[in-house]
Simulated assay, not measured.
Amino acid sequence: MSITVVGSLAYDAVKTPFGQRERMLGGAATHFALAASFFDTVRPVGPVGGDFADADLEVLRTRGTVTDDVEVIADGKTFFWAGEYGWDLNSRETLDTQLNVFETFVPKLSPAAQACDVLFLANIQPELQAQILDAVDGPAFTALDSMNLWIDIARDALVGVIERVDCLILNDAELRQLTGKPNLVAAAREILGWGPTAVVAKQGEYGAALITAASFFALPAFPLETVVDPTGAGDTFAGGFVGSVAQHLAGGVTDEVLCRAMAYGTALASFNVEEFGTERVTRLTADEIHERVSALHGFGRFTLQTPVLTGDRS
């Protein structure tokens, strides 16, 4: 199996109450690939400038990620984002955005990237996402991320792309904005009617929820005493989720497969926030992930002794 991800490779400048980095590796495709590479071969597709360091390409290749589809524009500069987080890390202020080579990005997929078994469309213009869907050779599973900007200025195009994918991954506020439904489940049910078979609602420190036609499944975020930087956590979650699905494609994308994927996405996202940028996930091990997934599984265990309720009394 193989996974293609199309999205940004970037440099970030981040300040949180726990420190700061003036220039660190980032971007949706970067965070996704580092997480998904635990499960399968990943091919990130996206542009970088001549300022993109060889050492950062090596970080991408940490677990065998194939970087042949990373387009290096020698006379250009890499996409750059700067932001500052509030004391609780839930509020974020964007200080600077420089699209640079990403402004004129036209995806160019190699034959190997086109022949992927799984496709993840990271947060880019819906029109580009549609072009990529036209270019690939019928992957067995497709998932898509987006953001409030595209809901505001390109909703029709975004809905058209959502109708063509298997899974939509958005945060809960974006799901409500997209559908105009104030209730998360109602919003997800509407989107399922458009074509996807699964909707994942990212809920930050409260975890994530999975809604399919037959089921609802939710996991809390892994409880951490130390959270340093949430940048890229959503894309890391998506990498873990989609990567886990890819690993179990042979048996079909069942609700069981999706629920397991939720656990691995949650675990990987929890490691991402423990340090800045890609620092923690780069040196992460499979054993650490399995241990955290087992702990998540244990959180749901309890012994049920049926109480006598008021309505049961004669």
Rank of each mutant, 00 (worst) to 15 (best):
E103W: 03
T104D: 14
T104N: 15
T104L: 10
F105D: 02
F105K: 00
V106Q: 14
K108I: 04
L109A: 05
L109D: 03
L109T: 02
S110Y: 04
P111F: 05
A113N: 01
A113Y: 02
A115F: 00
C116T: 13
D117H: 08
D117N: 10
L121G: 00
A122S: 12
N123M: 04
N123K: 06
N123P: 07
I124F: 05
Q125I: 04
P126V: 11
P126R: 12
P126M: 13
E127Y: 07
E127D: 15
L128C: 06
L128Q: 14
Q129E: 12
Q129W: 01
A130Y: 07
A130T: 07
A130S: 13
Q131G: 09
Q131H: 05
I132K: 06
L133P: 12
D134V: 08
A135Q: 13
V136W: 06
D137N: 15
D137V: 10
G138I: 11
P139D: 09
P139Y: 05
A140T: 00
F141M: 06
F141E: 02
T142L: 07
T142I: 11
T142K: 08
A143Q: 07
D145L: 02
D145I: 06
D145N: 14
S146R: 08
M147C: 14
N148L: 07
L149E: 08
W150Y: 14
I151M: 05
D152N: 08
I153L: 11
I153E: 13
R155V: 10
R155H: 15
D156Q: 14
A157I: 01
A157P: 00
L158V: 09
V159T: 08
